[in-house]
Design a protein around this nucleic acid. Structure first.
Lengths: 339, 339
DNA sequence: CTGAAAGCGCTAACAG
DNA sequence: CTGTTAGCGCTTTCAG
């Protein structure tokens, strides 16, 4: 199938004038005769002329396009971040290319290459669980493309970041469990190669330590998906390890734990109370509703995009990375209510 | 910030050869001397040369980019469709630009213009709830860009479509309610300007009619969001209209209804049983689990993408629109179990 | 085996 | 007020 879109030359030919005149007329250049302008604009409208963004990109060495690399789009948190980024970008006249790494390092690297090839003007990224080496991102940055990390950051890379205060949020969540009388609080943790995984664990430990509760390693398990949580609960209960509270690294994990716990005949929150870390609206549709840290995904997206455009649109040569820490609220719902 | 990416000319200059030789060497053209090839490829590797996709697009009048327009990315169904499209596209070496209409006609039109400007090679679209006029899509198609609709199609436009058999699926869902002894079955319907809204209502009516159950207009209400469902249930119950079964146009609506019904002291499925229309994994985390039609979003995405690439990669001039109807399964869970 | 030149669509400096 | 020209990065005839 051949595309047959109108160009400036088409308009010029029809009107028997030069392409540059058309170009100027279209952008209302003061030099151009009013009649010419009118003729050009009328014809452009009639022919539904759309400027060729590809040609403009080549000419200007700016693609007016930014890239996003996220692990998986099919998560409320990530898709709401995207939504935030998109709104800011489209308002600035920028287009967004979204790539999924599917939690794979290989794909993340491939995404970077593709985006480099498309000459994106900037990149917002949340790294995959697998990623331990950040050369692909450093390369990108070194070739002059501003970079902003969100949520899953790479401290090894000197770039802007927007994160929530994971340490504080986890601390608050755990403290809330302690304050409602829980003594044997388990943590379903994320991968420890991610900062968010480490920070959330640390916040949990800080709260326990502060309260004088000894840290029990049998209560700290790596489980960060619905499925893993279900299996882990079975393993723990079968081993006679019965927590009275669980702080989970994300909502799906919390919900997986919740379901299995209920299936085994324990009551929530009476026997075991649970706090998650928000993936979005899920917390409102469990029974009981899930207490959870609200991460404000949309706001994180707009913030990241604004930081990125600050870089893109400024001429500063020196680069002092900025870290923005968003406040995260603990929303207490039925799964951890005090009796 | 200036980007400083390596071009073919840079390599040519360093090696004191011409750009055309570099170009040929990079694509392993048989004419080129092995040593030259090696020198070029080594240097390209060292300098991390990435071909400029923008220049290629301009040269080839193909952007190797496809567009997606969806109402909102923050829905499991839509994001899983995107995932399917992306996987097919990236495997074919295409990039994907995703636009959200946010259910707004104006934004949908703007999205089309932006995508046209980017000279996308094809478009996959699910129209906004507001859209009644399809000129923007027809224009796009007329300028030679293949179009595939999914889910929310525009029958007014002669283009490929991939849909599920909404009529059949709704019929099955309603019939299931009838077979489990329900007599006063309500339908929480979607907007009637969308084919899916109309079809789902029609399937519901067909099942009732077939079973000899008269259609009661008080039981058919337009409610297609979590919030609207909550309000609608209150309104109905307060008016003394108590259904014994509800078929909802999507899962969030079903869940909204479910919660409010439970809050009012009715038991699900004993007093009122409920069937939804799938937005994804939500059905597994309600209590009781929600019976629902599985729409196979990912598969819909891959199918749509494959149909699109059939058009993009073929030279056919004649265009016979194809409609692919995917089978939708009714998954029966706790919310509509027979006693 | 390699180079020069033209052109994809657009703009901007330079000439009239 | 308008036209000519060159160039963004790349490929591809056409000429050596």
């Amino acid at each position: 199938m051949r595309s047959n879109q109108i160009t400036i030359k088409d308009i010029a030919r029809i009107l028997s004038i030069s392409p540059s005149t058309v170009s100027r007329a279209l952008k209302d250049h003061p030099d151009i005769n009013v009649d010419t302008k009118k003729a050009v604009n009328d014809l452009a409208g009639k022919l539904k002329y759309q400027p060729n963004a590809v040609a403009l990109s080549l000419k200007n060495s700016r693609s007016y396009t930014i890239g996003i690399i996220i692990p998986e789009i099919v998560h409320y948190f990530f898709s709401s971040v995207i939504s935030g980024i998109e709104d800011v970008a489209s308002q600035k006249g920028y287009t967004v290319i979204i790539c999924q790494s599917n939690e794979s390092y290989i794909r993340e690297v491939a995404n970077c290459k593709a985006l480099l090839s498309h000459r994106i003007d900037g990149l917002v990224v949340s790294v995959s669980k697998e990623t331990q080496n950040f050369d692909h991102l450093i390369d990108l940055q070194e070739s002059g493309i501003p970079l902003v990390f969100f949520d899953r950051v790479a401290p090894e890379v000197d770039a802007d970041q927007v994160v929530i205060d994971d340490l504080e949020a986890s601390y608050k969540a755990t403290r809330h469990l302690i304050e409602t009388g829980r003594k044997r609080i388990a943590h379903f943790a994320g991968p420890q190669n991610l900062v968010i995984g480490r920070d959330r664990l640390q916040g949990y430990m800080n709260a326990l330590t502060e309260a004088g509760i000894p840290i029990d390693n049998r209560l700290i398990v790596e489980a960060d998906t619905f499925e893993k949580a279900r299996n882990m609960v079975v393993t723990m209960l079968d081993a006679g390890i019965i927590p009275d509270g669980i702080f989970a690294v994300n909502d799906m994990t919390a919900i997986g734990a919740m379901q299995t716990i209920q299936k085994r005949g324990y009551k929530i929150p009476d026997d075991i109370s649970i706090v998650g870390f928000s993936d979005g609206y899920l917390s409102g549709i469990t029974d009981p509703h899930l207490s959870s840290v609200d991460q404000h995904g949309y706001e994180m997206g707009t913030t990241a995009a604004e930081m990125l455009f600050n870089r893109i649109l400024s001429d500063e040569t020196e680069y002092i990375p900025e870290v923005k820490v968003l406040y995260a609220d603990l929303i207490i719902r039925g799964s951890s209510l005090k009796e």
